[in-house]
Amino acid sequence: MNHVQALIDAIGEGAVFALIAVGIGLVFGVLRLINFAYGQLIMVAAYALAFPGNWPDAASIGLAVLAAVVASLVMERIAFRPLRTADPSTMLVATFAIAYLLQNGALLQYTYRQQGGLGDSIGTLSGLNQAVTIGSLHIRWVTFLAIGAGLVSLGGLALILTRTSIGLQMRAASMDFRTARLLGVKADTVIMAAVAISGVLAAVAAVVLSISSTSVNPTTGFQETIFVLVGVVAGGIDRLVSATLGAFAIGFAIELVGTELPNSGATPFTSNVYMPSVIYLAVIVVLLLRPAGLFARRGQRTVERV
C-alpha cells in the first residue's frame, strides 16, 4: 500500500485520540484524577446519537452533548466528590468501577430490548465517512473533522483557561487546590465546570468515532481510552498540550505500525498481530528515557504516576 496513504490514516487515528486526550487531560489537570470511565462517557453520548433514529443530525448531536454532560456531572456528584479527599489509588479504582458499571448497564439494556449486544447503528453525519480521492490517495472527510475538532477543542479550551474567570480558577486549582480554595475559589463550581466541559468533549469524540465505526456497543470508547491514557502518560500528563501530543503520537503509531507490519509472523516486529507489544515496548522505552513524558518541558519534574 502507498506509504502516504498509511500516513494519512495514521494522522486521522492520531487526531481522534488527541481529541479524547483533551477531555481526559482537563479533568486530570483540575482533579488530579485519571478517569478510566471517560470512555464510557463517550459510549453514553454515542448511545444518545443512536437513540433518536431519524432525528436531524443537529438534534441528535445536541442530545449526545446533553447526555454526556449529565452523565459526567452525575459521575462527579455520586462518585468523585465523596472521594475527593481519598487516596489517588482509591479514586483510580473508583473510575474503573464506574467504567465497568456503565458497560454492564449498557449490556443489560439489551436484555430488556431482547436484542443482541453487537450494537446499535448510528447514521449521524454519515456522509463524512465518504472519501476525497486525490490520485491513488483517499482521505475521508471525518479525518478532516477529527483534526479540526481536536484543534478547535484544544484552542477553545486554551481560551477558556486563559480568558475567562472560571478558566483562571481552574488553572489556580490545578496548581494548588488547597491554596486556591483559601483564596476564594469555589471548588465545587470549578470541578463541575471542568467535568461538564469534559462531557462536551466526550460527546464530540463520540460523534467523530461513530462516523467511521457506524455503530455503538457497550465497549465503545473503552479501548480507545486505555490507549489514550497510555499516550497521555507517555506524552507528559502534567500539561494539556504534551498530553494531547502524546495521545496523538500513540494513535499515529498504532495505525502506522499496524499498516507497515506484515500480516503474518511468529514474533513481535514481524506481524501486526503483535502490534500492541510493539507499541507498549516503545512506551516503556520513552518513559525510561524521559520519565516526565516525551513532550514534557526539559527539567520538568516527574508527575506522580498513580
Partner: peptide
C-alpha cells in the same frame, strides 16, 4: 489482510484492501 477486533487498525486494513 488481518486484524484483531478492537485493535484500532481497521481503517488501515480497509485502505490496504482498497489498494
Amino acid at each position: 489482510e488481518s486484524f484483531t477486533a478492537g485493535d484500532k487498525t481497521i481503517s488501515s486494513v480497509v485502505s490496504r484492501v482498497n489498494s
